[in-house]
């Protein structure tokens, strides 16, 4: 049976840990609000961009843009694996990484690009020490998204990879985040326009200089922005996961402290009883 002193030390250390988890929980709660605001601010852009893309796709019947064509045949898949930079968020990062590993099992030789330190470390462990990588928590996420988009676009156009797939976290709710695998390129026209053939081009839209040209400018932007918004979503989802994880950790610490306190009280009482018995015993022996 542990001594009273041992138990008291353990309780003290648990209380310290609890204070840390409590602080992290509050920080995550504050940061999630900021991440959500950033996400909300990017939505008007997303809506407008989507609308323009739809207009263009309807106007254009055949497009001579590399993004609209199948990639080089036989080329490996290109995968952008996106996690947070830090841990302490439950299974948040490992869920995404597992999705990446599963994808790799199906697509041999997949070329990885990683965003986020946790993803980088995981892919390095998989035996790709020098794949292109970026951190998630950069001063300008937009810059990073641009860099990533440029890098994957170059590899796609030169035929190093046959498609571009994004594996990142989807923010389902505060309590649930799950990994999501999305194919970004090639862009399938029917997926955007929809198979609904009755929807004829609305109004004759005038394009300057030509729909093909505008589309060729818009598609790279679309890729760039999709990566950017995935980064924002990963950020928000990470803090939600961390909030939950830290909340659980604080609760668990409370439970443990309660248990140990009872144990400590028992041990203290046992020691007192033992001492009393010894005194009584000794007094009886003397009389």
């Amino acid at each position: 049976m542990p001594s009273v002193k041992d138990l008291r030390d353990r309780i003290r250390s648990l209380k310290n840990t609890q204070q840390i988890t409590k602080a992290m929980k509050q920080v995550a709660a504050a940061k999630i609000r900021r991440a959500e605001i950033a996400q909300k601010q990017s939505r008007p852009y997303a809506d407008a961009l989507g609308e323009m893309l739809l207009d263009l796709m309807r106007a254009v019947t055949s497009v001579d843009h590399p993004f609209m064509k199948e990639g080089a045949s036989g080329a490996p898949s290109g995968v952008i694996l996106m996690t947070a930079d830090k841990g302490l968020a439950g299974a948040f990062n490992s869920n995404v990484i597992r999705a990446g590993e599963l994808y790799r099992a199906d697509h041999k030789n997949a070329q990885f690009y990683t965003v986020g330190i946790k993803a980088r470390n995981a892919v390095r462990r998989l035996g790709m020490p020098d794949h292109p990588t970026w951190v998630l928590n950069a001063p300008s996420k937009l810059e990073v998204a641009r860099e990533v988009a440029r890098c994957v676009t170059e590899d796609f156009v030169t035929g190093k990879i046959g498609n571009i797939t994004l594996i990142s976290s989807k923010f389902v709710s505060m309590l649930s985040q799950r990994p999501e695998v999305r194919k970004l390129v090639p862009i399938i026209r029917s997926e955007i326009v929809g198979t609904d053939a009755s929807e004829t081009p609305k109004g004759a839209v005038e394009f300057a200089p030509s729909p093909e040209f505008v589309l060729s400018q818009l598609l790279p932007k679309y890729l760039e922005f999709t990566i950017y918004s995935a980064m924002l979503e990963t950020d928000a989802a990470f803090f939600a996961a961390q909030l939950l994880a830290m909340n659980n950790a604080t609760d668990n610490a409370t439970k443990l402290i309660d248990e140990l306190t009872i144990k400590m009280n028992n041990a203290r009482q046992a020691a007192i009883t033992k001492e009393l018995l010894e005194i009584v015993g000794a007094a009886e022996a003397l009389s």
């Binding site: 323009m52 207009d55 004759a204 839209v205 005038e206 394009f207 300057a208 505008v214 818009l218």
Partner: peptide, 19 residues
Amino acid sequence: VTTEGEEGILPSHAPFLAA
């Protein structure tokens, strides 16, 4: 400033999309 030069838009403009 579009890629084709300056473009002015007034209300009730025909549908138009430019880079």
